[in-house]
Amino acid sequence: MEKEFMLLIHNQMDSKSQLSAEESQRFLKDCMVYINDLMKQGKLKGAQPLVREGKIISGSKGSWKDGPFNETKEVIVGYYHIVAKDLDEAIAIAKGNPEFVYTSTARIEVRPIKMVEQETGFVYPKEG
C-alpha cells in the first residue's frame, strides 16, 4: 500500500546566494525536471517553499516570546509531500533532490505521515 511522507528540506538561509545566474538557472531547470518526474509517476501531492520571513513562538500563555530566526542558522526552506511504497523509496526520492547537487549544506528530513491510528481506527483529516 502507498504511504505518504513529508520531505522537510533543511538548509542554510542563504545557501543559494552564492550561485551564479547561470547556475541558478540550471538549478531551476533541474528542479522542474525533478518535480515533473514525480508528478508523472503520481508520487507528488504538493511542494511549497517557506518564505524567509517568520517568527518562532515560545513560552506559554501569559509569557509568550516571539523572535525572528537567527539568519545564519539552518531553517526549513520548503517541503515536498510525496507518496511512496515505503521509507526506502521515500529516501531514494529525497536523495534525488537537486538541492543536494547545488548546495553543500542541504539536509532532508524524511518523515512518514500517520494516516490511521492503529488502535482506535481514528482517521486523521487530510489536506486538500
Binding site: 543559494k16 546566494s17 550561485l19 541558478s24 518564505v51 524567509r52
Partner: peptide, 17 residues
C-alpha cells in the same frame, strides 16, 4: 540583484516559473 535572484529561486524551485 543577487538577493532578488536567490529569492526567486527559493519560490520557483517548488512552484515553477
Amino acid at each position: 540583484v543577487q538577493d532578488s535572484l536567490a529569492e526567486a529561486l527559493g519560490q520557483w524551485q517548488y512552484r515553477g516559473i
